[in-house]
Nucleic acid binder design. Structure first.
Length: 489
RNA sequence: GGGACGUUAGCUCAGUCGGUAGAGCACGUGACUUUUAAUCACGGGGUCCUGGGUUCAAUCCCCAGACGUCCUACCA
């Protein structure tokens, strides 16, 4: 809305002529015996159901919001919409009688009404309800956005999502898909014996990832608490406690930047399977993605950022070292640090002079290689220093037994053969590479010392997954109420 | 954080090489008993994001700010 004087304000100096007119209509309706904000209305079905049960002459009761109106004089055609669909109303003066028809004319676009009438098909082939009776359910005091273009202003669409949802079908569809995707993930995992659990979002010490947390003060205990950056360490405690297959799909919070692909609160699926490993994670992920694509989209092929992506499993698997050699030459890992830096700079990758071979390698992967992996790909056997919570490969203690699942040039889902050795875990925390150092969670180490079963685990960024499956190019398009900078009052 | 661009009627957008603005939808009045982006006629509606500056005159030019979008850097 424009910017300062909008809808939510109703103070006398700020009303506009549209609102005043609607209030006048509301008062006239009230005088005619129509309560402007009605009570429950019993429907014979929702609009989708009514359409599906169509029969000529079938008597139905429907409720919804008036979206458009075509006034032909003695007959008015209107579109009524609820959460499931739209249907045309045929409102006729003779049918209703002069007074009821005159009252109907006091309705405005955006009002909610309930109607009763018989179904029929108009000459032009439009399924309709011939209204015998109607009742006012809720008067809208503000105009809905433009009926054809909808609400386009990106800022308004995020700040006033209700207007976006009222007027933009693509937006409604996208969020319905998000809901369906999450529902199908749950139902798939439950069918495989996983249980959904809840672990603390308010934590005395944030762990499970390297990220800046949100801090808050807990008055009752007079201590600092942190919004979780990941649920991982708690889910693993549950493995220790005897839950064999657990998952949690809920919010993480990170006190970091805000852009096209980052929102400070975002939804992640984390999943752990006792007695499993990286391979079991690969299997569950392939099965889950295929199920979600089929049940929600009806296809495994999606278009994302101009690329056609085929989610038909199995997905190809390639080792981190092979990717590096493929890009930088077979002798890449034999180069000295200086040679490696020179080669990286030559390839257009800027390197900090402090970096060792490992960090230069990571920069090359991040800057040159990851974005070229468009089709779903498991990148495996990654240097262990980057991944303190994973076990190393049985045949090579320098490599972590993990995969990074990359799609459309972006990392979508990391999965590990989880570290369950408390001594190795403590060492790994202490020896992390780069600047991503986590504080050691002593209670977590204690839990490991009780014996955590060997396990596979993974984390899937739900928002980005939904973006991919719905072709959205901003995370704000898949989060109902994304974070925006507050407006000054 | 750095850079580019944007902000005009309730909504979608034009526009003014500096002389306070237009269209479509919506709204109001009238016509119309099968329309569906209904149609036709007439009409009302604006702090041109905010604050400074230049100027006889600023919505337009300059400076600063707010918010947003895109690019770029960083975390997923």
């Amino acid at each position: 809305m424009s910017k300062e004087n909008n809808s939510t304000e109703s103070s006398p100096g700020n009303t506009n002529e549209y609102r005043e007119r609607r209030i006048a209509n509301m008062q006239a309706l009230e005088k005619a015996g129509y309560a402007p904000f009605g009570t429950a209305f019993s429907r014979s079905d929702n609009i989708k159901g009514i359409r599906e049960k169509y029969e000529e002459g079938l008597k139905v009761r429907a409720a919804g919001r008036i979206m458009t109106s075509r006034d032909m004089g003695k007959t008015i055609f209107a579109d009524l919409r609820d959460g499931t669909g739209r249907i045309q109303l045929f409102v006729n003066k003779k049918q209703l009688g002069d007074d009821v028809f005159a009252a109907y004319k006091l309705l405005d676009l955006g009002d909610h009404i309930g109607v009763e009438g018989e179904m029929f098909i108009t000459r032009t082939g439009e399924m309709s309800i011939r209204v015998d009776e109607w009742t006012l359910l809720s008067k809208a005091l503000l105009q809905p956005p433009e009926k054809y273009h909808g609400l386009q202003d990106t800022e308004d669409r995020y700040r006033q999502r209700y207007f976006d949802l009222i007027s933009n079908e693509e937006s409604r569809d996208r969020f319905n898909k998000r809901i369906a995707i999450m529902r199908e993930i749950r139902s798939y995992l439950e069918s495989k014996g996983y249980v959904e659990v809840e672990t603390p979002m308010l934590q005395p010490q944030p762990g499970g990832a390297a990220a800046r947390p949100f801090m808050t003060h807990y008055n009752a205990l007079n201590c600092t608490m942190y919004m979780r950056i990941a649920p991982e360490l708690y889910l693993k405690r549950l493995l220790v406690g005897g839950f064999d297959k657990v998952f949690e799909m809920n919010r993480n919070f990170r006190n970091e930047g805000l852009d096209r692909t980052h929102n400070p609160e975002f939804t992640v699926l984390e999943l752990y399977e006792a007695y499993g490993d990286r391979i079991s994670m690969k299997n569950i992920l392939e099965g889950m993605i295929a199920h979600v694509c089929d049940s929600v989209l009806g296809t495994k092929i999606v278009t994302y950022e101009g690329n056609e992506i085929d989610f038909t499993p199995p997905y190809k698997e390639v080792s981190y070292y092979d990717l590096l050699r493929g890009r930088m030459g077979d002798n890449w890992f034999d180069l000295s640090v200086d040679e490696a830096r020179a080669a990286a700079e030559k390839a257009g990758v800027e390197c900090d002079p402090e970096w060792d071979h490992l960090l230069i390698t990571r920069e090359i992967y991040d800057k040159l290689i990851e974005r070229t992996l468009i089709q779903p790909t498991f990148v495996i056997r990654i240097p262990r220093q980057f991944i303190p919570l994973a076990k190393t490969c049985v045949d090579d203690p320098e490599l972590a037994d993990v995969f990074e699942f990359v799609v459309g040039g972006k990392e979508l889902c990391p999965a590990y053969t989880e570290q369950n050795d408390p001594i190795a875990q403590r060492d790994a925390f202490a020896n992390q590479a780069g600047d991503e150092i986590e504080k050691i969670d002593e209670d977590f180490i204690t839990a490991l010392e009780c014996g955590m079963p060997p396990a596979g685990g993974m984390g899937l960024g739900i928002d980005r997954f939904v973006m991919m499956l719905t072709g959205a190019d901003a995370i704000r398009d898949v989060i109902l109420f994304p974070q925006l900078k507050p407006r000054n009052q």
